[in-house]
Design a protein around this nucleic acid. Structure first.
Lengths: 249, 249
DNA sequence: TACTACATCTCGCAT
DNA sequence: ATGCGAGGTGTAGTA
């Protein structure tokens, strides 16, 4: 962005950056009002405002990892404040939501056309955990035989479906973190659904997770289900230990 | 930040800003590797890196509202790249996590000491919805009498507990959005818990939400629960309509 | 489009 | 510290 002087020049440059789908960063003292799915107001303080190429707007306070305010797929426009000389107003609106930011003092502005078509490669998800169990079902128990993946998908969201040594059907729900009450009720829903759809009365349910809370364990046992301690896999860790140089910048 | 020239000067200035707990913004082309709760790698592209006063690090791509990579409560240090001349490496580490960012090209840097002690005022939450029902229980049904708030807290997380016209105990779970399967199982948990703790066999369960999915409705009815259409309140909207000038910047 | 469930969820509150 | 549930959740996958 050019170094044109004065508020009006800044205003013009910001609006130009916005219409060019550049990524825009403002450091400023501002107050924020929002109305849409809920209503909010935030009194004046120093914040970073980011408007991305896809018109996502984020307002970040100097602490915390989440934006304190945000808008998605909105149109944005900046103009001079009507009430107080020297202020700017950033107005954002979308279908059902609107936001108004009063900028009391602009600390800095930066805009740039950014290019990034990369997608993240992520390992250690719940999906990876389920795949690990399907490839090595012994981590759950001896003699477990997972049903074929194509077969399993008929039953919807079940993480792993298998037969145990005695031929019982086993529903396994994976959680990468500590199992909770909600996780146990989720397992129960799947067991009940498959019981009904297959007309089988005895189906085992196993929560495979990295720990379980006491209340969740109690509910699990009350319902006749089981818990198996499993830690989520991190394939890249193994990969890195062999090829550490890849990330040795 | 000063305008000291050269990569080494930039490096020094960034590390100084970091040690001063300033908020730091980098626009750059970079690649990111993360290892901790999971493992990830992101190939080179243009991104915004933000490091806040509380050592939160965010990596934002030019689209999307969530950071593509992040770290909390980590320590950060920037240094020259070992392999490729002209590159910088930002290393972040915390107790159990680490991240390494190779900066191929630095587009811009900005740092500032930001001050913001404000907290957001938010209306229209689930809590507000529960309070609305307690103040105006008729929105659920005629003759409903909520039990006193202090009394209710004994039963834990139940949103609203009430007696109906016939004296039956009613458990109400509020959801500001469309009711889902998980919401119905949550209601069920609360009803079962209170049934047990009070030794009552008949307790009504009502899901008060802004809509309900078909499957959730079926499960709700199978279990003998009810749904009541309720929209979340937005107190500020009323407030604004009367005092619009407050936000007329 | 709607529905479903995951998330390196984050955050606040209560125990 | 841990348990628990909300979130203006966001996001991806699937029917």
């Amino acid at each position: 962005m050019g170094a044109k002087e004065g508020l009006q020049g800044i205003e013009e440059n910001i609006n130009k950056a916005l219409s060019n789908s550049e990524t825009l960063i403002l450091g400023c003292n501002c107050e924020v009002s929002y109305s849409g799915r809920a209503e909010s107001h935030l009194d004046a303080g120093d914040r970073i405002i980011m408007i991305k190429a896809d018109n996502t707007l984020l307002v970040h306070q100097p602490t915390g990892s989440n934006p304190i305010n945000y808008m998605k797929e909105a149109s944005h426009k900046i103009r001079a404040g009507k009430r107080i000389k020297g202020t700017l107003v950033l107005e954002s609106s979308s279908n059902k939501e609107s936001m108004k930011i009063l900028i009391n003092k602009l600390h800095f502005v930066h805009s740039a056309a950014l290019e990034d078509g990369q997608k993240i490669q992520l390992n250690g998800t719940e999906r990876d955990m389920a795949e690990m169990i399907m490839c090595s079902p012994d981590v759950i128990e001896d003699g477990l035989r997972p049903v074929k993946q194509e077969e399993q998908t008929k039953y919807g969201f079940v993480d792993v479906l298998a037969h145990d040594k005695k031929g019982n059907l086993v529903v396994i729900e994976c959680k990468r973190y500590k199992g909770s009450l909600a996780d146990v009720t989720q397992l129960r829903r799947y067991v009940e659904k498959i019981k009904k759809s297959k007309g089988i009365s005895k189906i085992r349910g196993i929560l495979a997770s990295n720990g379980i809370t006491p209340n969740a364990r109690k509910m699990l046992e009350d319902w006749g289900f089981e818990h198996k301690q499993v830690e989520p896999p991190k394939y890249m860790e193994r990969f890195n230990s062999r090829q550490r140089n890849l990330f040795d910048y």
